[in-house]
Amino acid sequence: MAAHDTRERPMRRDAVRNQQLVIEAARDVVSEFGTDASMELIASRAGVGVGTVYRRFPNKEALVDEIVGLMLSELVVEARRALTLDDGTGLEVFLRVLGHSLSTHRGYAVKAVGRSKADCVEQLRDLIDELLGQAQRHGRIGPDIRLGDVMAVAWAVRGIVETTGSVAPDAWQRHLDIHLAGLRAAAPQSARVPVSREQLTLITGVAHPDRAPGERPAVR
């Protein structure tokens, strides 16, 4: 049995290594060419056979879902790190990180809406809400700003990243500066009702983990 384990252990290490190579290559290739990039190109960039890719990911949709999930997981880590700042700047810091992530993963960042696991999206949304509350307690963000307002800023940044592409890759930063200035205003800029948490769920197409399948939330 010991000899059998010794023979298998290198194979397991190789499998893990190949999987990591495929994921890293997929992030680079899909960022560069978008989700139309072929599995053959990803395999070539990873330095493995295309069969190796398909053994772990049955189709490109599964591979894209994997790298989208990684992107969101990294954002969760960054949001938690931003919460450790004790001066109320965490929200602004995180929105900068978010913009850079959307720019780096431009080819597939749009897939983070509507195709991601609900629990991951909700977790990130909860952290952003905490960052907002922290910023408001420190007087850095207006008291009438809500989570829906912050998410609208994130959507706007993503739209600019997708529109400007490699032609003006930093254009989103000025746009974010302008929006942050508005969020800091002492008085609300609009009397209109902000997007609610339930509406955010409907917009992104992600079901709440505590809601029965097919159940539509009441929009308030």
Rank of each mutant, 00 (worst) to 15 (best):
G49C: 01
R125A: 09
L21K: 09
A62G: 09
S44Y: 01
V50K: 08
I141N: 02
V77H: 09
R13K: 11
D126V: 07
S116T: 15
E92T: 05
Y108A: 11
E130T: 07
L21N: 01
D87Q: 11
D119E: 13
E130M: 13
V50A: 05
G139M: 14
V64I: 15
R125M: 10
A118D: 08
M39E: 00
V77F: 10
L75D: 01
D87V: 14
G34H: 07
L21I: 01
L95I: 03
A79P: 03
L95R: 11
G99F: 00
V64G: 09
E122Q: 10
R115A: 11
S103H: 08
E61V: 10
Q123A: 13
G34T: 10
A79I: 05
L95M: 15
E74A: 11
M11G: 08
S73Y: 01
E24M: 09
S103E: 11
G69F: 03
V29R: 03
E24R: 12
Q19L: 06
V110P: 00
D144R: 11
E61Y: 06
S103G: 10
R125S: 12
A112T: 09
L70H: 01
I128V: 15
A43K: 01
N59T: 13
G107R: 07
L95Q: 14
I145Q: 04
D36Y: 09
K111H: 15
K117D: 07
V22M: 12
R137H: 15
D129N: 09
